[in-house]
Design a protein around this nucleic acid. Structure first.
Lengths: 140, 140
DNA sequence: TGTAATGATACCATAATAGTATCATTTGTC
DNA sequence: GACAAATGATACTATTATGGTATCATTACA
């Protein structure tokens, strides 16, 4: 079971890399070269990030992508929402179940708690948080 | 994204039903009739539960399944482990990533936290807890 | 000995995810 | 203006995980 799918993962890496370049536009060839993400897949992902206003794109020679807003305003949760349709972790099982068909069901409660917890955790992770973490590690 | 897959769900319902019958062996035809779970799929699930010592099976006429241990000793977490290979929620992404390739990575930390939280929640749910919850609701 | 059950196992179907290919459009540069 | 280098749009294919089916073998009771 994956909490983070590969496209979210790729999106996050690409966004981190772009963030680190400040206002310089970053092209797909460069990203492919540095991150080793399959080209066409990455392109699709970046287009989606552009459509959702995470990135701004620039066509033509010398074109590429930059962040649409500051790195501390881009949350992992945003990306998860975009690529995984949010965190609705369960799909409301136990509808017609004879045993736990209950609103106050212990299971239901737990699942909601888990969702909320995951949500709160992912909301704390921004691009800038991730960049700081990797910087620290490089210094070591 | 599903935290609980359908076979775990079916397994849980079936186990709950069987638990409610106390020491009476419960056959597949009966379970299918009551729970409306596809027959062959249910059979496979019950076989797995038997192999993992959650249920005991009895062949032949009048045969079926009973719990292998008390309902308060069977955890949802057991079933999740059996059918979903535990809760390893992420599959160790970010290996060769340039940005958060860090042991102390903020993302990694969060994911581990979420896993642990989910684990602790599912460990609290036993068959008997679920049965009590549904009883209460029926009384209402 | 027949029947009603489970055991074992191989197979198929569907959906989600991952990845590819192609043509159109924009933009900078000579 | 022509060409090249980039993204936009979109349709297609591949792979994997999940969900489900079918069939024959084995056991045990009546």
């Amino acid at each position: 079971m994956k909490l983070i799918t590969r496209n979210t993962d790729y999106a996050l890496r690409a966004a981190c890399y772009i963030a680190a370049q400040r206002q310089r536009t970053v092209s797909v060839p460069e990203l492919v070269n540095k991150l080793r993400i399959p080209r066409q897949f990455l392109r699709k992902i970046l287009q989606v990030l552009n459509q959702h206003n995470i990135l701004l794109s620039h066509k033509g020679t010398g074109g590429g992508f930059i962040l649409a807003r500051p790195a501390d305003k881009i949350f992992l949760l945003d990306l998860i929402r975009i690529f995984q349709g949010g965190l609705k972790i369960n799909k409301c099982m136990f509808k017609k179940s004879p045993c736990p068909n209950v609103k106050s069901c212990a299971l239901r409660k737990r699942i909601i708690k888990i969702e909320e917890f995951a949500y709160s955790q992912f909301k704390r992770v921004t691009l800038s948080v991730l960049m700081k973490a990797s910087k620290k590690a490089n210094v070591k």
